[in-house]
Amino acid sequence: MTPAERDPLIAQATSAWRPRDADGGARFHPAFCDLDGPGRRELHEQLIVQRRLEAALDPDGLTTTAHAVLHRIRGQ
């Protein structure tokens, strides 16, 4: 897999949006499934950095992951 193929997939999978199954559970992102092993490792590292950035930008220190989960908990 070339960087030109890999980078857009990593960029997509860094979103906290995930498809839902019939029970509302989070399924794997389609872009994650298309990534190779090195791309998935890179995604893991980028997610750590990106969520740190998001937490630092949020007044409550919450990431988009946290907001997605709280949204489900609050039934919004």
Binding site: F32, T65, R72
Partner: peptide, 14 residues
């Protein structure tokens, strides 16, 4: 990281 989508697993964990 190479086998499971950590973001999806993390959201279900939380």
């Amino acid at each position: 990281a190479t086998e499971v989508d950590g973001e999806a697993v993390l959201q279900e964990t939380l």
